[in-house]
Amino acid sequence: MARIWKFGDSVNTDDILPGKFAPFMAGEDVFQTFAFHYIRPEFAASVRPGDVLIGGRNWGLGSSREYAPQALKKLQVGGIVAPSFARIHYRNLLNLGIPAFEFDLTGLLEDGAEVSLDVQTGVLTHAGGTVQLPPPPEFLREALAEGSILAFFKKHGRFPGEPA
């Protein structure tokens, strides 16, 4: 089972990883230990692989820093569910292969709840039942089918949807 880490509205990229702990400052090997350093200082030491983060609207506003979601990937976060995402961050999440679902779970689940998330089907199972999370936008599925946008581009030499 995975644990729910519940956050509020407007979790910004400085909340996720403060700029002063970017890999080129804190070190490539340790920067992820500063994830949520100011707003959830216990997070990085306690999060387990597969744990699911849920938040409110406008998750990931702010910087284009890809190392913020990279830190969550290094900590093996299983997915992020929020009713809306900031656009640069949303691209970064999907580019790094971190499952991101546009859905509001904050009214349903409490911090620390035990769940399981099937990232392929988008089915989240919790103590009281299951939730079908919406799939990623159609135009991204072609890339995700190859594993990532980088893998798609390397294989095909073009972007998904672009004429060959």
């Binding site: 284009s64 820093r65 890809e66 190392y67 979601p69 640069i88 691209r91 970064n92 580019n95 790094l96 946008i149 980088l150 581009f153 073009r158 972007f159 998904p160 949807g161 672009e162």
Partner: peptide, 18 residues
């Protein structure tokens, strides 16, 4: 427009973005 390192690298490699 701003983008992360992966999108920026793809733009540099291809001369394009999506």
């Amino acid at each position: 427009s701003g983008m992360g390192a992966t999108d920026i690298a793809l733009a540099a490699a291809s001369g394009k973005t999506w």
